[in-house]
């Protein structure tokens, strides 16, 4: 962009011979010859070092220390890693990142923000098949967070909740199962598949406590208790709780998904046809009963 070097180079090119196929060159030093000399010029070790295990390319198994007590066996059992391969992961997104996304217009704060809109920025990724279950909103940048948002994340700590609510926003923690997440990671691709939107499953037993907890702003918690807890948190952190009821964006701030719903405005069982721009809804009674919340 606008660099002086580009200008100078273009000025010089006016008086230089025409750039053509015959006078191109790569950057000096960027290419090295792969050829190895023959005979006495070739080197006799073929790049594998001198003698022994290395030269024979006898690679030892991972962690083996040629007879020492290996590092991975040297210490006793570490129980806090037990079941680590089965635990849910929540890849972090800091509040600073979130603020940046909003200020750079990658996220629209005038609408509810959920996992789908965060994923649609292309700047945050999850891999549900690696047991990643959504956003962990971390408190980095909580002090400067000033955006009024209605946000739904999958994991949040107390300072994060306080920072969102101090700015006049609303936060919910919500659980999505594997199938829902697969539909959310690329919503367009999912709609193109032409399958009905699945219904969101309830959280597993070990997560239900978190998502029904009003202090965690869980989506299964009692709304009355949540508004109580909002006041408690405001007193604990010492800020005046902005009144949502008098907010001009009251409608947006109180918009919530159904516990069975994945996309805002779309219900489970619907098929979105992007080509003809129509939504097909189930008519059959049995289907309606199945997809009912």
């Amino acid at each position: 962009m606008g660099s002086n070097t580009a200008e100078k180079a273009l000025q010089m090119l006016k008086f230089l011979p025409r750039v053509c196929l015959a006078n191109l060159k790569p950057s000096p030093g960027s290419r090295t010859s792969k050829k190895r000399g023959r005979g006495q010029h070739g080197g006799d070790k073929h790049g594998a070092g001198n003698k022994g295990s290395g030269q024979r390319q006898n690679y030892m198994r991972l962690g083996y220390e040629t007879g020492n007590n290996p590092f991975y066996l040297r210490f006793p059992h570490e129980p806090y890693y037990q079941g680590h391969h089965l635990r849910r992961e929540y890849p972090p997104l800091s509040m600073l990142d979130l603020l940046k996304l909003i200020e750079m217009n990658r996220l629209d704060a005038s609408k509810p923000i959920d996992l789908v809109s965060i994923l649609n920025t292309g700047l945050y990724k999850i891999f549900p098949d690696q047991r990643q279950y959504g956003v962990n909103l971390t408190d980095e940048g909580a002090d400067v967070f000033n955006a009024k948002v209605n946000i739904e994340v999958q994991w949040a700590t107390e300072p994060v909740i306080a920072a969102i609510e101090r700015a006049g926003g609303v936060i919910t923690t919500a659980y999505y199962d594997q199938h829902s997440l697969q539909a959310m990671i690329n919503a367009k691709k999912f709609f193109e598949r032409g399958v009905p939107i699945p219904r969101r499953m309830m959280p597993p037993p070990d997560a239900i406590e978190y998502y029904a907890d009003p202090t965690k702003r869980g989506y299964l918690a009692d709304p009355e208790k949540i508004s109580e807890e909002r006041l408690v948190l405001a007193q604990k952190y010492g800020y005046e709780l902005p009144q949502i009821e008098k907010d001009p964006e009251y409608e947006m701030l109180t918009e919530r998904k159904d516990p069975r719903q994945i996309f805002y405005g779309l219900h489970p069982g619907w098929v979105v046809n992007l080509k003809d721009k129509v939504i097909l809804k189930p008519q059959d009674e049995e289907l309606e009963r199945y997809y009912a919340s």
């Binding site: 660099s3 070097t5 580009a6 273009l10 090119l13 750039v19 191109l24 060159k25 950057s27």
Partner: peptide, 19 residues
């Protein structure tokens, strides 16, 4: 537009393309 028609004349990138 200068980003297209007054870009840095990187002969090395052009060489990479031709190669």
């Amino acid at each position: 537009h200068p980003e297209v028609f007054a870009a840095n004349p990187r002969v090395d990138i052009i060489h990479d393309n031709v190669r």
